[in-house]
Amino acid sequence: MRRFLLIAIPFGWLLALFLVPFFIVVKISLSDVAVSIPPYVPQFSWETGIGTFLRDLDFENFVFLTTDSLYWKSYVGSLVIAVISTFLTLLIGYPIAYGMARAPEEWRATLMMLIILPFWTSFLIRIYAWMGILSREGLLNQFLMWTGVISEPLTILNTNYAVYIGIIYAYLPFMVLPIYSALDRMDTSLIEAAEDLGCSRLTAFWLVTVPLSRNGIIAGCFLVFIPALGEFVIPSLLGGSGTLMIGKVLWEEFSSNRDWPLASAVAVVLLLILVVPIVLFQRNQQKQQEAEQ
C-alpha cells in the first residue's frame, strides 16, 4: 500500500500537471481556428458525440508549418542561438565556477550567494532592466561614450547581440552551479599528482581538471540549452524584428494572431525537438549518480 502511494503521488502529479495539459495542447493543435470562445473548433459536446468530434480533427496545422518557411527558419534560428549562447555561457561560466571552487573556504558561501541573488527579483524585471542598459541612450552607451571608446552610440538593443547578452545573463547561474559542484568535489591532490608526474599547470588543467568536471559541464550545458531553445521573453523584449526564435513566433501566433491551433502545433513540434536533449541530460545525470555510488 505504501509502495503504491509512493509511486502514485509523483505519477498523479505528472499526469495532472504534464500529461493532461500536453494532451489538451495536442488536441488544440489538431483543431481549426475559429471566431469563438475559446477560439477554435471543434468543441466536444455530448449531443454530437465523440465520433463527430474526432472526425473534425486533422493535421492541417502541422502541414502548414512545413509550407511557410518562417517556421522552420525560426526553429533553426532558435537552435543556432541556443547552441552559440550555451557555448558562450560555458566560456564565461567555467572560469567563474573555477574561481569559486578555488576561493578560500570562508568566501565560498558569499560567492554562491552572489550567483543566486538575481533569482530574488522577477525574471521579467531583470530583462526589462537590460533594455535600459542596452538601448541607444542606455547606460552602456553612455558609459562607453563617456570613456571615449566610441563617439556614436552602438545599436545593441533589438539585435541578436542583445538576445545573446540576455540569455547568457539569465542562464549563467545554471551553468556555474553544476560546474562549481563538480570542481568543489575534486581532490586538489590530483592536480599536485599531475604536476608531480611532469605536467605544467596548464596541461594538468586540461588532462585532469577538465575531464573531472565533465559531468558538471554537460549538466550545465543542458540546463542552459533546453530553456534557451524555447525562450520567448528575451527575444521578444531584447531581440529585433530580425530575431527568429520559435518561442517568440509561438507567442505571437498565440497572442497577436489568436491562432491557438497553430501555436499549439508549434509548441508540440518544439517539445518533440526538446525530447532529445532532455533524454540525453537525464542519461548523463543517471550515469553520474551511478559513478558516485
Binding site: D187, S189, A193, E195, D196, L197, G198, S200, P211, L212
Partner: peptide, 20 residues
C-alpha cells in the same frame, strides 16, 4: 625548481589516482 621539473616522484597519502 617546480615540481614537474624535479627528478622526484611522490606517492600521496590519499594515493591521488586519476579516477577518469
Amino acid at each position: 625548481v617546480p615540481p614537474n621539473k624535479r627528478a622526484v616522484n611522490m606517492m600521496f597519502q590519499s594515493y591521488a589516482l586519476f579516477p577518469h
